[in-house]
Amino acid sequence: MPDLITFISAALIAAGAVFFIAGTVGLLRFPDTYCRLHALTKADGLGLALIALGIALTASSFGEVFRIALIWFFVAVASATGGHLIATHARRVDRAEGKEGS
């Protein structure tokens, strides 16, 4: 049984890493700022969630699980808010440069 949990944990962590790589690939390949933000907020967000879940599965105490959940929550809120702020900023720069983004 512990072996099974270790295996699931390892699989979740690997899947998380794949999403981080997807996020970076999107960051490098996507054509404009806004599309890159999609890659960053969504793919990296899920990547972290999967890694956090994988680590939490093998945690030794409830305190650890709570801390991991708290970390995930902070990062998820920060990344959604941050994505919005960066997009708003980019649109303001677009307008200042005379480009209408839509």
Binding site: V18, F19, A22, G23, V25, G26, R29, F30, P31, C35, H38, A39, K42, A43, G45, L46, G47, A49
Partner: peptide, 19 residues
């Protein structure tokens, strides 16, 4: 959120990059 991340990952990895 899983659907969103899978969707964006597929677009990122796809050679044609459907955007």
């Amino acid at each position: 959120s899983v659907r969103g991340a899978v969707d964006v990952a597929q677009r990122a990895f796809s050679p044609a990059m459907p955007l």
